[in-house]
C-alpha cells in the first residue's frame, strides 16, 4: 500500500475511456472487485487472529484498487459505486454472499481468486481484450496470485485441521458452490475461451480440495447453477442490504464532496 494507492487510482481526466462492450466488461469486473472488497472489509476487527485482520484488509484494499481503476475507464468512480440501483450492478452473486464463518469466507475466496487469477492471466495474453484492461491485468494478476495463495493455505489448514474445521470448510464450500455457476459466463468485450478457463479452474480447485482432504460438493449442493445471474443485474437478497449500508451516507448528501 503506497500513498499513491489511496489517492484516486487514475486521474479521472486522464484515464483511458472505454465505451460499448469494453465499458460493460470494465463494469462487470469492477463490480466484482468492489463488492468482494466490501465484504472482506467487514471482517476488520472481527477476524480469528489479529494477523488475519491485517491479511484480509490487504486483500480488500487490492480489490478496491482494481475496482477504482476499472471504474475510471467508465466514468466517475463514486457515481458508479454510490448512485446505481441494485439492478444496475453487474457483479456475480458469489461475491455478494455474506461472510458467514471464516470457512465460508475462505471458500468464497478460493473459488473467486482461482477464477480471477485465470481470467487476469488470459486477459494479459489476449490481444483482443481492451488495452486499458490488459494494462491493469499486469498488476492485478500478481495481486490475485497472492489472494489465491492465501485462500489455498487456509483451505489446507481448515480442511486438514480439526474435525470441526473440516466440517465447517465442507459446509463453506457447499454454501458458496451454488453461486459459482456464473464465474465463467462470457463477459462481453473479453473474447476469452471461457469454457477452457472453467476446466482449468475446476482442475485447480479439485487439486487444492484434494490436498485439503475435501471434495467438490456432492448431492443437493452439487449443482452450481445460478438462478438469475448477477451479470444481468439479478442479485440475491443480502445484496440490497449491502448497498443500503454502503450508499446511505453518500446519498444523504446529494452533490457533496468528501
Amino acid at each position: 500500500m503506497t500513498p499513491a494507492d489511496t489517492a484516486r487510482s487514475t486521474d479521472a481526466a486522464t484515464a483511458p475511456r472505454l465505451t460499448g462492450e469494453g465499458a460493460a466488461a470494465a463494469l462487470m469486473l469492477g463490480d466484482d472487485a468492489l463488492i468482494l472488497s466490501h465484504r472482506l472489509a467487514e471482517w476488520t476487527g472481527h477476524a480469528p487472529a489479529l494477523e488475519e485482520d491485517v491479511a484480509l484488509a490487504n486483500i480488500s484494499l487490492d480489490l478496491l484498487g482494481q475496482a477504482r481503476t476499472l471504474f475510471s475507464f467508465v466514468g466517475d468512480e463514486d457515481e458508479l459505486a454510490y448512485l446505481r440501483e441494485e439492478r444496475a450492478f453487474r457483479n456475480i452473486q458469489l461475491v455478494e454472499q455474506p461472510n458467514g464463518d471464516f470457512a465460508q469466507t475462505i471458500a468464497r475466496q478460493l473459488c473467486f481468486s482461482l477464477a480471477q487469477e485465470l481470467r487476469w492471466t488470459a486477459i494479459l495474453d489476449s490481444a483482443d481484450c481492451p488495452t486499458p484492461i490488459r494494462e491493469l491485468a499486469a498488476k492485478a494478476v500478481k495481486e490475485t496470485a497472492y489472494h489465491r495463495d492465501h485462500a489455498t493455505e487456509w483451505t489446507l489448514r481448515l480442511g486438514d485441521g480439526t474435525e470441526e474445521s473440516h466440517a465447517r470448510m465442507r459446509r463453506g464450500m457447499a454454501v458458496m458452490w451454488r453461486h459459482t455457476g456464473e464465474l465463467f459466463a462470457p463477459v462481453p468485450g473479453l473474447p476469452l475461451d471461457d469454457a477452457a478457463l472453467r476446466e482449468q479452474w475446476l482442475t485447480a480447485l479439485r487439486a487444492v480440495l484434494a490436498e485439503a482432504t475435501l471434495d467438490l460438493p456432492e448431492g443437493p449442493d452439487a449443482d452450481a447453477w445460478a438462478a438469475g445471474g448477477g451479470r444481468e443485474g439479478v442479485h440475491t437478497e443480502p445484496f440490497g442490504f449491502l448497498l443500503a449500508e454502503m450508499q446511505h451516507l453518500h446519498r444523504s448528501h446529494p452533490g457533496a464532496t468528501w
Partner: peptide, 10 residues
Amino acid sequence: RNARDLYTRR
C-alpha cells in the same frame, strides 16, 4: 505470509 502483510505493507 503474516510477515509479508505485517512488515512489508509499505
